[in-house]
Amino acid sequence: MSVVEIDDLQKSYGSKKAVRGVSLTVEEGQIFALLGPNGAGKTTTLEILEGFRQRDAGRVSVLGFDPADRRGGREMREQIGLVLQDIAVEPYLTVRETVARNAGYYPAARDIDEVIALVGMSGKEKEKVKDLSGGQKRRLDLALGIIGNPRLLFLDEPTTGFDPSARRSAWELVRELTRLGTTILLTTHYMDEAQALADEVAVIAAGEIVARGTPETLGGRDTAKARVRFALPEGHSADELPVAVSPDGEEMVTVEADDPTEVLHQLTGWALGNNTTLPRLIVDRPSLEDVYIRLTGEGADAPQAERSMT
């Protein structure tokens, strides 16, 4: 069953087109990652799904509700959880009071102490929110996102600003929630986060989805050519090699091949026959990061991506 359905979503701010024709489907039980650089339209898309912003055109369904229709808002919000980018909780309430207050708004809230333990805040129940560190506040925000026992959880850049160990704990929590039956739609600009968590990834750039798939197949990663890279051995030129290579900066050369076995055999045979080696030899395929940078046009087209920021 699809939990989220978006069809040809459009949204402009003045003359700036923030979202242009995004379509996607999130299935029940999935972790779906919307991956893209800052200003690509991730948060705008998420905020339309959450009912914070009105769309200009397109069809949107969240758990069968139209988020733009406030009449179904309360019922929809009883079944979804949100973790926003802004940290925003009453500064003078304690951790437990903050969670208990929000628990009161849901008909089937989770146990308050269990949720506090789940986000790793046990022992901090009596601390005032204003005395928490930034990371602790974000974990409290996560607790507020899941206190209502949601069927669907939106996470907007959930680990931005986390240290590596806090990120791993947050990932573990996200996986735990999926095991308990929560569907998760998250945005991120971290490739490793999408790789570690997502069942399905959609890459968004300048308001359009430019690729979708599993982290393994995204952008044709699984069928992409393998790259064999090495430095030219001293005293030899590229012309002497048994295969054609292309220069690759820093004295490195690259050969691309559908299957590297044959090429490697020729190259290593040539090196042994000439009593030399292939320094810094690497065989790899494009990483998710390579694909991402190619798809989002970051790097070469960076200024253009900048202009489309919202």
Binding site: E78, Q79, G104, Y106, P107, A108, A109, R110, D111, E114, V115, A117, L118, V119, G120, S122, N149, P150, R151, S169, E172, L173, E176, L177, L180, G181, T182
Partner: peptide, 17 residues
């Protein structure tokens, strides 16, 4: 982080008055 026990799929309970 510890393990949760409440199954998320079950939406029981009623709205407060």
């Amino acid at each position: 982080m510890t393990t949760a026990s409440a199954p998320a799929a079950q939406q029981t309970g009623r709205r407060k008055s």
